[in-house]
Simulated assay, not measured.
Amino acid sequence: MSDMQDYASSLSDVKSRKFETFSYLPEMDKEQIRKQVEYIVSKGWNPAVEHTEPENAFGHYWYMWKLPMFGETNVDTVLDEAEACHKAHPNNHVRLVGYDNYAQSKGAEMVVFRGKPV
């Protein structure tokens, strides 16, 4: 039986904070992010992009980048919007969300760009 691994994360250390499921895994490369977007689109979920300052990631709502991309099926369009948000707000965390209309909740959510704490 393997030992449980402890992640050094604290509220006072912005860089150590964990966000959503994927943040406990090694950082995803562009191809792995693309696969996640393909999954979101294949499920019929509506993609959206959100961002926030690293110090506000836990206690505040995230800002929505434009409106959710209702009915968007082009993976490149979704990735381009995430990249545009990151370029406009380079110091912010940027996350990709897949809204599930049927369950009326988020079906997927992952940080795709980590901001630099000020």
Rank of each mutant, 00 (worst) to 15 (best):
E55N: 01
V41E: 12
S105W: 04
A82N: 09
D29E: 12
M64D: 04
Q32Y: 05
N46K: 03
R114L: 12
H51Q: 12
M28N: 09
L96V: 07
V75G: 03
Q5R: 13
A103Y: 03
Y63R: 00
R114E: 08
S16Q: 09
E20P: 00
S9H: 14
K116T: 11
W62E: 06
E53A: 07
D80F: 05
N56P: 05
I40K: 06
G71M: 10
E72N: 06
K116D: 14
W62F: 15
D29A: 12
V112T: 14
V111T: 10
H89P: 00
A8I: 08
E109H: 03
H60Y: 15
A57C: 12
K43H: 10
F113G: 03
T77W: 11
S42W: 01
Y102E: 11
V14N: 04
S12Y: 14
N46Y: 11
D13S: 07
Q32E: 15
L79E: 08
Y39T: 03
K106P: 00
K30V: 12
F22C: 09
N56S: 15
E50Q: 11
Q32T: 08
V78P: 02
V112S: 03
K87M: 04
D100R: 00
H89A: 08
K35N: 10
V78K: 14
L96P: 01
K66W: 11
S10R: 12
Q36F: 07
H60V: 06
A48M: 13
M64K: 11
T77S: 15
W45K: 01
N74M: 12
G71R: 06
W62A: 08
M110A: 08
A84V: 01
N92Y: 14
M64S: 11
V14L: 10
G59A: 05
S16D: 06
Q104K: 08
N101L: 06
Y24I: 10
D76L: 03
V118R: 03
V94I: 15
K18P: 00
V14Y: 10
A84S: 09
E109D: 13
E109F: 00
G107Y: 05
D76F: 10
A82G: 04
M4L: 10
V111S: 06
H93F: 12
D100I: 04
G115F: 02
T77V: 14
E81R: 01
M28Y: 03
D13R: 09
V111P: 02
A8E: 15
C85T: 06
K35Y: 04
V78D: 07
K43M: 15
A82E: 07
E55S: 04
F22N: 14
M1K: 11
C85N: 04
F58T: 06
E72Q: 11
R17P: 08
A8N: 15
N46G: 00
N74L: 09
A48T: 06
Q32W: 05
F22Y: 13
L25Y: 14
E38N: 05
S2A: 13
E55V: 08
P47Q: 04
K15F: 04
G115Y: 04
K116Y: 07
K18G: 02
M69Y: 06
K35W: 05
N46D: 15
F113P: 02
V14R: 03
N74D: 15
D100V: 03
Y39V: 02
K43V: 02
T21W: 10
V111M: 10
D76Y: 07
F70M: 05
P90N: 00
L79Q: 08
V78R: 08
K87Q: 15
S105R: 00
W45I: 00
W45G: 04
R34S: 03
Q36L: 13
E27Q: 06
H86F: 09
G115E: 07
I40M: 12
